[in-house]
Structure formats: C-alpha cells, structure tokens
Simulated assay, not measured.
Amino acid sequence: MKGILLVNMGGPQSLSEMRLFLKNMFSDKYILPLPFGLRQFVANMIAKKRHPSSWEKYQLIGGTPIIKHTEATGKALAEQTNLPVYTAYSYTPPFIADVLDKMVADGVDEIDVLTMYPQASDTTTTSVFTDVKKAAKKLNGVSIREICDYSVHPTFLEYWKTLIEEHIEREGLDNPLLLFTAHAIPMYGVKRGDKYPDTVKHMAKRLAGLMNRRYEVAFQSRVGPVKWVGPDTDDHLEELVVAGEDNFVLIPLSFTTECLETVYDLNIKLVDIYKKDERVKHISRVEIPVAHPLFIETLKRVVNE
C-alpha cells in the first residue's frame, strides 16, 4: 500500500516543549555543523538560555500555527489523493522515525516523503531526508521516494500569483513593490554548496514575471553572530524606504504555513511599525491560507508526477 509522509519542522506547544524544540533544532548537523559532542553542548546551552524569551514570542502570536496548519494540509491532501497521509515533524513530536514505524505497522510499504519546504536546502529538505533514511534502515521491504523541490511547479506559482493578486486587489493598490522574503540560512551553508538562495531568487523572478510586477528579494530571521545570506529583510526594507519607495507588499515566499517568522518577524516587527511611519503610504503582507486548494493541488501533482 502506498502512503504519503508529510514533514514540517514542528512547533512548541508549551514552555518545556520550547526547550526541546531548540535543543533538537541546534542538535541538527545541517543547522549547526559542529562535531557531535560540541554540537550537543552548544545545543543544550542555546536551549537553556533562549527558551524562555522564545516562548514569550510564541505567546504573543497565540501559539504556533504550524502543527494545526500542517495537519489540515495532510487531511486535505489525503482527500484529494485517496492515499493515507501521515504528518511528522523534525523537532517536536510526533517525530519522523515514530511515524514511519506507524506507517509500516499500518501496512504502508511505498512511502512518498513530501515536505512543507518548497525550496530545497540542506537546512530543511536534506535534513528531513537524512532522518528518513536513518529510520528506514530499520524497516524491511519499504520503498522510499523523496520529493524535494516544487518551488517553480506551475501550480505552485499559480497559487502564489493568486494570493498576491487577490491581496493587491483587496487592498486597492496601484503598482506596489513586491518584497519577497525568505528565511535566511548561514553563509557557511552557501559556501558548502547549498543552492537555496539561488532557488528563492529564481522563484521570485519567475513569479514576478508572470505578474509583470516590480520586485525585490530579501532574507529574514537571522539569529546569532555568524554571517547570514542577505540582504536582510529588515535592513533592505529600510534601504528601500530611504530610497523613496513607499508602497510595499511583503510576500513570505519560503513559507507554506503561518509561523513565528511570518506573524512575529514580519507582522509585528515590520508591518505594524512601518504602518506608523509617515514615509510609507502603504505596507501589508500576503497571509498564508490554511490548505488552499491550489497548494493542495500542487502537492497532489508533485506526488502523482
């Protein structure tokens, strides 16, 4: 029997799970490329130090939407494909290995692994597939297929085009500058060969071309002292305002669910502040709907293709 494993990063739903989330994330060699022992030590230190302040941010946005939105996506995809869809997470329960065990126990022996990350990256898709391969070694007679990048799939581009154009019409805007923003990755990953920034820029170019609209690309949510891929969304937005731009629509291009990085980093830290800035006539953000039909159709098609 064939089934789909839909994977996302996960999200903390309590203060203690916030600490677990941070520990697991920074224990990931694709997030923090240090020797195992040192990585575990640093991960524990980061989790201990940052989990109270990080949890405060989650409380400001009413808790993480990731779990609920991912589960809704899985349910809708199951209805459209007539296949069993199981959801798993990298950094909070239910974890990938546990869900794979359940799939096999349920009689699934052909598994399509699909992530909620549209652009391939070592920090996301490679990390997920590494965990899948590790867990699959213990499973006998199971076929695994990895689906790693659907960023420029025609249906996915149509999905984003629809969201953007509907937003612009609803806001009554005339020729806004589209500021595509994606989660940043550290430059050490790019130097190792991660093509994620180029993939994001390519998708933005394709999408803006379909709409014949002006655009810029930036990268958000940097943490820590290391150098990250840029330009940084916060800094670049200010540069554009200083240069005379005053009409913006922010588009969270690397995200498929609402999360801390969209609601807090974009809405609270940027949009809400610049709405009060006299230099800016308009600023808003395209919100990510839950299980939009065109997004579900994208996932269905990449599975079938």
Rank of each mutant, 00 (worst) to 15 (best):
Y159Q: 08
F219N: 00
S121K: 07
A204P: 09
E239S: 14
Q13P: 02
M25A: 09
D106K: 15
K300R: 14
E165L: 15
L60Q: 15
L178N: 02
V290H: 06
Y89I: 09
E110H: 14
K201V: 06
G3D: 06
A243K: 15
G3E: 03
K191V: 10
T87W: 02
R285C: 08
T162I: 07
G107Q: 05
N247H: 11
L32R: 00
K2R: 09
A291G: 09
N247M: 07
E56S: 09
V190H: 10
K281N: 15
A291K: 03
L157Q: 10
T81K: 14
F295D: 04
G172R: 14
H282S: 08
T181G: 03
Y30W: 12
V226L: 00
D28M: 10
L240D: 05
E158A: 04
S54G: 08
L240R: 06
Y58A: 01
H167L: 04
S151L: 10
K48A: 06
A291D: 03
D265Y: 09
I4W: 04
I283L: 15
T130N: 10
E258R: 09
V132I: 06
A184H: 04
D246E: 09
W228V: 03
I31N: 00
A182K: 00
H183S: 10
K134M: 13
E239I: 05
S143E: 01
P33L: 07
G224L: 01
A243D: 15
S54E: 11
H183C: 12
V128P: 07
V263H: 02
D106R: 13
D98C: 08
E17C: 01
T262Y: 07
L34G: 02
V99W: 02
P252Q: 08
A208T: 10
F21W: 11
N175W: 04
G107S: 05
V271K: 05
K275Q: 13
N267V: 05
K137Q: 14
T233R: 06
L38M: 13
V242Q: 12
T73H: 02
T130I: 03
F36S: 10
T130V: 06
I46A: 01
Q220H: 13
A78W: 00
P35C: 02
L253G: 04
H167M: 02
F180N: 09
M103D: 01
Y86F: 14
R192W: 05
L210Y: 12
T115P: 00
K29M: 11
S16G: 07
R279Q: 03
S53R: 13
V142Y: 06
R206K: 12
K29F: 11
D112Y: 15
L100V: 07
L20M: 14
L260G: 01
L157I: 15
D122T: 10
K161F: 13
I164T: 10
K75S: 08
D149V: 08
L177D: 00
M18E: 10
R19P: 09
F129E: 12
Y89M: 15
A182P: 00
A97F: 12
Q220R: 14
E216Q: 12
K205F: 06
D277N: 09
T124Y: 07
H202G: 13
V200S: 03
V113F: 08
F95E: 06
L60I: 13
R214N: 07
H183M: 11
E239Q: 13
M45N: 04
G107K: 06
Y117C: 09
N212W: 11
N267E: 15
N44C: 01
D198L: 12
N304L: 14
L177I: 05
R39F: 01
F36E: 11
K2I: 00
W55Y: 13
